[in-house]
Amino acid sequence: MIVSKRILDFYLNSSIHVALSCYALVRITFHVFHIQYDEPMALFVFFGTIVGYNFVKYDALVRVKKKTIGIQLKIIAVLSFISLVLVGYYFFHLKQITQIVSVGIFAITALYTLPFFPNRRNARNWAGVKIYIVAICWVGATLVLPIINAEIPFTPNFFVKCIQRFVLVFVLILVFEIIDLANDDPHLQTVPQTIGVKRTKILGFALMVPFWVVGILTFDLHDLLINLIMVITLMLFIAFANPNRSKYYTSFWVESVPIFWWLMIVFL
């Protein structure tokens, strides 16, 4: 039991799970826009997510707080280095315009972590903007990059999908913010800190309804039914979210929603 928990903790702490979520969203983008499987693009996002998330999570811990590096963190560092090498390898298999846009997304991630401006906190600690920065990065990595690399023009359908993807990630983060309410710095002004848990849940429900309804215009019946199951699942996670929940509620179960969505598309 203890060994299983350690393996699960490493799987989550090393950002492999969140990377699978991003990979799943890339695969959903391929499906929705009828793009043939693009391995360099999909794996670039997968390994890039591991590098980006581990950089965000552990940079301040090591660089600023000077924490002692334990064995798990050392293994995560090795994994992150290998992932960085693979990111570089797949980077050179992408179209030039995709490379340029991906550098822009990396710059936003770096801004989120590092204090570029004198006497200023990093963007992660800017009041009220954290949720938008994360959502924009996810949309850019899992939807915009695959579309650009496939050389598909920006049609109205593309912008609708960008809004939908943004809404999905936004709502996923709302659940995280509800769970983290007791631990988040009050100065962050997260959505639950600003409007309360009850209203945050109502906001999440309200956003998921148009997310599904808009899909009526762009999905076939098969996809609409799958999307409805995904929406109901996420609504249940919102409904039962509270600050007393275990970290696994969000770090494993809620982040599994994109994976669950993709697997339904594949197997149903």
Rank of each mutant, 00 (worst) to 15 (best):
V3N: 02
K5A: 11
K5V: 10
R6W: 10
I7T: 12
F10E: 03
F10H: 05
Y11V: 11
S15A: 12
A19S: 14
A19V: 08
C22T: 06
A24W: 04
I28Y: 14
I28K: 13
T29S: 15
F33N: 03
H34A: 09
D38P: 01
E39Y: 15
E39M: 14
P40N: 03
A42P: 08
F44T: 06
F47S: 07
T49M: 05
I50Q: 00
V51F: 10
G52L: 11
Y53Q: 05
Y53W: 01
Y53C: 13
F55W: 11
K57C: 02
Y58F: 14
A60D: 09
K65N: 11
K65Y: 15
K66N: 13
I69Y: 05
I71T: 08
L73G: 09
I76T: 15
A77I: 07
I82K: 01
S83R: 07
L84D: 00
V87S: 01
F92E: 06
H93D: 11
L94Q: 01
I97T: 12
I97N: 15
I97M: 06
T98I: 07
Q99I: 08
V101Y: 14
S102E: 00
V103F: 12
G104P: 09
I105N: 08
I105W: 12
I105E: 01
A107R: 06
A107C: 10
I108R: 04
L114P: 00
W126P: 00
G128Y: 00
V129F: 07
V134L: 15
A135K: 13
A135Y: 11
L143E: 10
L145M: 09
I148P: 03
I148K: 07
N149G: 05
T155N: 03
P156F: 03
P156I: 05
N157G: 01
F159Q: 10
L168H: 02
I173C: 14
I173Y: 01
L174T: 00
F176K: 13
I178Y: 07
I179N: 07
A182S: 12
N183S: 08
D184Y: 00
T190K: 07
K201Y: 06
I202L: 08
F205G: 02
F205A: 02
L207Q: 02
V209C: 00
F211H: 06
W212Q: 03
V214E: 03
T218W: 13
L224N: 03
L225R: 10
L228E: 05
I229A: 13
V231S: 00
T233H: 10
L234V: 04
I238A: 04
I238L: 15
F240E: 10
A241E: 06
N242G: 02
S246K: 14
Y248I: 07
Y248E: 13
F252C: 00
F252G: 00
I259V: 13
W261L: 04
W262A: 10
V266F: 14
L268W: 12
L268M: 12
L268C: 09
